[in-house]
């Protein structure tokens, strides 16, 4: 049984993860809740971690695997109101996850669990030549700009600048973040990095980002992008395979 202070914040986490995955197996134990899965086309990986400290209350015995249909979970979470607390309660007898919104009253959905097991995928230990910390909304806006021009985007680090650019058949777009840019928090690089990525996936991954959030991007040349940010007490990490010429 786990209680989160803001159901509305957690809704953004579920919304974002549901953009990429159809189902997920949550692992709940003493440390909190984690989950990791690849999308059906094996292009993207999502890793979710909600530390025990993010919960207002958290009770567990042993370790539980909770298989969830994300489309159904998302629909339920969309019913969260701004002051609702969220209680997630595993009913092992009925094989259901109770999703409870608590405010002036108490609304309870019982979500049927899926018979899936947690994926064995580990996050690969990749060494990245460039790490960029950036205001999340600035990154999201640059991706939306690029989306007007093409279906892919190039993320580049060169000369202490982070660049988002794309070329369409007729039109081009580029956004530059250098040390003078207030959106850039930090940039560390050993040489250049340049990789191209599918924009649809990237836009799905940044869906939950709002003003004030900070994203951390790990980049290389023709290497998967690692993207990290925190949302509603959850740490989200994404890996996205590049497009290569």
């Amino acid at each position: 049984r786990a209680t989160l202070e803001s159901a509305k914040e957690f809704k953004k986490v579920v919304d974002t993860v549901a953009q990429i995955l159809d189902e997920i197996c949550l692992i709940a134990n003493e440390d909190g809740i984690t989950a990791r899965a690849m999308d059906p086309s094996h292009v993207a990986l999502v890793s979710l971690e909600i530390p025990r400290l993010s919960f207002e209350d958290y009770e567990i015995e042993g370790e539980k695997e909770i298989g969830i249909d994300l489309e159904a979970f998302k629909k339920i979470m969309n019913r969260a109101k701004s002051k609702d607390k969220l209680i997630l309660e595993l009913d092992e007898e009925k094989n259901k996850l109770n999703v409870i919104f608590e405010n002036s009253g108490r609304r309870k959905f019982s979500l049927a669990l899926l018979d899936i097991s947690a994926s064995e995928i580990k996050m690969p230990e990749i060494e990245y030549p460039a790490v960029v910390m950036l205001k999340g909304d600035a990154f999201k806006e640059a991706l939306k700009d690029a989306d007007l021009i093409s279906d892919y985007v190039i993320l580049k680090v060169e000369d202490n600048k982070f660049i988002v650019e794309t070329k369409g058949e007729l039109n081009d777009f580029s956004a530059e973040f250098d040390e003078d840019s207030s959106a850039l928090i930090s940039i560390e690089s050993q040489g250049h990095a340049k990789s191209a990525f599918n924009l649809e996936y990237l836009l799905d991954m940044v869906k939950g980002i709002k003003a004030g959030d900070i994203v951390k991007l790990y980049l290389g040349t023709d290497m998967p992008l690692k993207l990290e940010y925190s949302l509603g007490g959850a740490n989200l990490t994404f890996l996205l395979a590049p497009r290569i010429e």
Binding site: H42, V43, P124, I126, A241
Partner: peptide
């Protein structure tokens, strides 16, 4: 034109 790579290709390499 560029081609979408799958993550598995990288998992095998790393």
């Amino acid at each position: 034109k560029n081609k979408q790579i799958k993550l598995i290709d990288f998992f095998n390499n790393y």
